[in-house]
Design a protein around this nucleic acid. Structure first.
Lengths: 194, 194, 194, 194
DNA sequence: CATGAATGAGTGTTCATTCAT
DNA sequence: TATGAATGAACACTCATTCAT
């Protein structure tokens, strides 16, 4: 007797999640190129063939990771947007960003690595582009926060803010042990959230 | 008549340079993985076999690139150090860094990409590490500049300075068209070079 | 209330027919290798697993197709044999053969393709052999028609007849648009049915 | 010291020939699908990788075979065309065709098998098409022979001629043991070369 | 010094078949 | 009876590296 469709759906979702999690683990730990489909299947404790029932291939796994990442970042921005005071919004963004990188520097590293893929890499640049375009979209939202604060040149201020935040995240992910995150948070807030 | 030893050496150096230049071009344009040894040999107009006379292999090319990069960055720092006023030194660093990224965003992109290699990538992480360690060394020099200025917590100030500068470089390399480099230079100088 | 055994049998037969029809469609359109079991199951609107209840696998489907084909060809020969005059018999064979190919050139193509499978193809040659052996059997019947006409060397005449007819069928299936079937029918009849 | 370019060319040609011969042997014996690249490499006594230095892949081998086949057929037609009397030309074509099939029935079988590939087989149909188009071109030449003989409807006569010849070739390749080739040759010549 | 023919381990992917439900 | 999730062997192809010349 066949399984009920909903039961099947549950099984599919479980397997898909297990596979994607395995892929994320390995891609983030070792990188995309150093991880073989075999590795992913073993880590997920499934057969190589099954992986292709759920994902279109190695690139499909990366694509899924990227979408999840984008959703995660968007969520932070939306939560921030739901706060009342613009200063609170910025504070939230800064703290979330820094905390996330601090807790999982390899994750930020991975997506930054992907984002910095050379443009002529035909296989992987599309994912870089996707990340950058999405970041640009979120930058627009950030701009509107600065507008509502009433700073003189909100776009430029926002750009400087992003640069600083990105730089800090990069430094944290590079020197995760030695970075005084609390003080840096404070400095950023002092400068941008008056 | 056999060539003189020094003439031989000169020829060797020329060939080596041509190969390395070809590798740099291609690695930076398309990335390390998307570039084959064949591509490099063709671009350098030499045979595949000869490449192995001059470099230990694909990794050897990357290693040479990294060393050259490190030397280039060190040179900037040294030039800065040779200036009199600490404020001039910082100004020089900021302007050089920003100008370099602005003129060749792909180059910065490439080395940042390499630097963000996952730690468990056994093939490439050593080069990431090498870059990071060298950057740490140069950070120390930067610290001493801030010390000589007499700011309260020079290490932390220097860290914040580096973060901001790195962030700006990352943003420029990501959005090379739209970045108001002159204004950002100004902002940084206003903030850090009193 | 359980279904009656005969009702069950009828349902089985319907399902089997639906599957076989799907397989025939796809094999004939795209070929055996280019068609996957998945394709067949989807086309038949059943599950992959169920297919294996009715057929022993992909080869089983082909085997069933071959048997059906053989039965179809035998039927034509038998119908021909039921006619009175030998000349009428040959005429019937010629017209049936040519009309069938003309109406469904892909079908003839498919079985000719199968028949020309290399002998050392362990998977598919048995079906080629089966077709050829059956054709040989029908050739014997054809021979007896020529015998009854009273032509001098009936086997050789029959062989020449078959060759010509096969050649015409091949040409029709190769150039289905441009073949003057009516004239060719006439020519064959003029030559072989005095 | 490097080999001279001409020496290299010689080596390349030898290897290429050896590989193509191995592929032809195996494809013709076992068929395209039943033959793996590994098989070809082993038969040619070279490594799998080397094969890709000379051919673009499995399909490339088939393409090379098809071109060679086309050239071979064209050569026969050209030789025929160089004869004086049209009747001699037809005789030459008939005898060459029949002798070739008789001596190597598997070869004719293979190309007929390829020619009868279903049109929707995206991988292999192009080669089928190539063969058919070339055959059409040679058919035109044949037509002109019948024209110069002065038969009433040369195109139709030529079509019937081709059909008969193709049918005989098919029959020979199907029953290579039992086919009375000499008598059949005679019959064809009697019918078409007055 | 210089060449490029040759190698072979490694990789992503497909698909007929099985089996728990 | 019927489903489709799961398997794993097989395959085409790539590419860094070696080495005879």
């Amino acid at each position: 007797m066949p399984r009920s469709p909903s039961e099947n759906e549950r099984i599919r979702q479980l397997a898909k999640d297990k596979i994607l999690e395995a892929a994320m683990d390995l891609f983030i730990q070792q990188g995309y190129h150093a991880t073989s489909i075999n590795d992913v299947a073993k880590q997920a404790e499934i057969s190589k063939g099954l992986l292709y029932n759920y994902f279109s291939g190695k690139e499909g796994l990366l694509a899924a990771m990227v979408e999840e990442r984008i959703a995660g970042v968007a969520e932070v921005i939306e939560k921030a947007a739901s706060l009342q005071a613009p200063a609170e919004q910025l504070k939230f963004i800064v703290e979330q960003a820094i905390d996330n990188v601090y807790q999982q520097p390899e994750v930020f590293r991975f997506y930054l690595h992907l984002q910095t893929q050379p443009e002529a890499d035909q296989e992987l640049f599309p994912y870089s582009k996707r990340l950058v375009e999405e970041a640009a979209r979120q930058f627009e939202i950030q701009c509107s926060i600065f507008e509502s604060i009433g700073v003189p040149e909100p776009r430029k201020r926002s750009l400087y803010f992003s640069s600083t935040l990105q730089g800090i995240m990069l430094m944290i992910s590079t020197y995760p042990q030695h970075f005084p995150i609390d003080e840096v948070k404070e400095q950023m807030l002092k400068e941008f959230c008056p």
